[in-house]
């Protein structure tokens, strides 16, 4: 029991180190964004004697969740070999957790970021909204399909530069 205060300090330090480590864990489907930037890594905490990384799936059936859990675990175990990953569903992930800088990064990589807040239903598909082309910035774009290459994206085409592009759905 006398070791307890000492352990707590260690815990806090471990959490900081693991958090630092997490900056290099990328979303496998958006490899220029970290799981933290995506809001997938919800928290890193210290429980009893080990670090727990809490992650959340973007969509219920997102196949990347398993890969992400494995990548997070591997990265965390470099610091703490007893580290664990826990998946939390509630509160449900939302694109509102993606900050402005991250949205700009998406834009730079040719993906139209989610527009506005998920509370506004008209933002759902981007339909009826102006989704600017991430490549030529034209506002003259068209929804091709509300579904895309991954669960989180819709397919658009730009009527100006004629390039197809993906829009990150607002949920």
């Amino acid at each position: 029991m006398s070791d307890l205060p000492h352990q707590e300090i260690n815990g806090a330090e471990l959490v900081i180190k693991v958090k630092r480590q997490m900056q290099d864990v990328m979303d496998p489907e958006l490899p220029f964004l970290s799981v933290e930037e995506m809001g997938i890594l919800r928290d890193v905490i210290f429980e009893k004697d080990h670090v727990v990384c809490i992650i959340t799936p973007t969509y219920s059936g997102c196949p990347a969740t398993e890969v992400i859990a494995e990548d997070v675990l591997t990265a965390a175990r470099v610091i703490d070999n007893k580290a664990e990953v826990r998946i939390a569903i509630s509160p449900a992930w939302t694109t509102d957790w993606i900050n402005k800088e991250t949205r700009e990064k998406m834009q730079k990589h040719g993906i139209a970021p989610p527009e506005g807040s998920s509370h506004d239903r008209s933002f759902l598909t981007g339909e009826g909204r102006v989704i600017p082309c991430p490549l030529c910035k034209s506002k003259n774009t068209k929804l091709v399909s509300p579904f895309g290459s991954t669960a989180c994206k819709a397919s658009f085409i730009c009527n100006e530069c004629l390039e197809p592009f993906e829009h990150f759905k607002c949920i």
Binding site: S90, L124, I171
Partner: peptide
């Protein structure tokens, strides 16, 4: 689970 599902089913 349902809160997450609502977003998907709406779509």
């Amino acid at each position: 689970i349902a809160a997450k599902a609502v977003k998907e089913i709406r779509y």
